[in-house]
Amino acid sequence: MAVRCAGIEKGFGRGPARVQVLRGTDFSVPTGQMTFLVGPSGCGKTTLISVVGGILSPDAGAVEVFGQDLAALSRGRLADFRLQNLGFIFQQFNLLPALSAVENAAVPLIARGESAARAHAAAAEALGELGLGDHGHKMPQQLSGGQQQRVAIARALVHQPRLVICDEPTASLDAESGQNVMALLRDVALAGDTQRAVVVVTHDNRIFDFADRMVEMSDGRVVGASPAAAEP
């Protein structure tokens, strides 16, 4: 299991304005698979993967990622944990506009303290795998949406994280780019490695075919999964 969450509670705001978003959510992500998290808008999908990714702390419940209890980590250690083990892909690609494609993709390695030369070489390789070998020197605004999302994927994968978390990765893309991006994500992020896992939050039923497993959420709870998680 890559992720094991049990009884997650998370709400926002105080007093009468408080909204309870996650209501005792149980959620797990097996390794070697691409898990899709689906459900109506506002049901708490983004909130749940933020908790899983260690960028939002739950009010109650336990989150284990690769056996590590996230609640046991200080804020700094949690950042280090993300840097080592997680890759994020956002709906808005959130590339740094002042950096070229290669420099953007190299950010996690630079943040780890690796030399610029090594980081850029690894980033160029990741871009190559994603079919952007010739575009490494370009700035984000010179790239199409699909190309930008592929740069973002390269950034999420360059440090070979064990878990990749994606929120609506294809929402800003046309159908064809969406298909390409998902195929690349499956091939590169999992790469046939049974120790790695991918979680994708999406509304986009055009890419449901890529799911090894679908988890459905409604109103702050996981209401079903297909196929059901095989507990070891």
């Binding site: 990714g53 960028i55 804020r75 700094g76 950042a79 280090d80 944990f81 993300r82 840097l83 080592q84 997680l86 994020f88 956002f90 808005q92 959130n94 590339l95 740094l96 506009p97 950010v107 996690p108 943040a111 950034r155």
Partner: peptide, 18 residues
């Protein structure tokens, strides 16, 4: 203007100190 990018860097795991 680049606050979203800073948030992205933090999510990726860049520590505040850096």
């Amino acid at each position: 203007e680049s606050i979203k990018q800073y948030a992205a860097l933090k999510a990726i795991g860049v520590r505040n100190g850096r």
